[in-house]
Amino acid sequence: MITVLAVVLTALLSVTALLALARLYRGPSLLDRVIAADMLLATMIAGVGAEAAVNRHATTLPVLVVLSLLGFVGSVSLARFAVREPA
């Protein structure tokens, strides 16, 4: 069961990350890239968390806290930058 769960989660999260990367590559504007980067970061949170859940250890939980705050700070600062940048 654990193996199946790990494989399924890995597949889902990998596809998610690839789609986010595609938008990051294609995104016509900076804001689209910010959205995609946020998405990618959330996928990373999901990946780290899923690994902790599958292997039943809590050593990486602080990483989750840091990542969840990092995404917020990153998007907010880039959004402010994008308002100032013309077009």
Partner: peptide, 10 residues
């Protein structure tokens, strides 16, 4: 749900 969100973003 994350996958669906990524599809939507794309």
């Amino acid at each position: 749900l994350g996958l669906a969100a990524a599809i939507g973003v794309l």
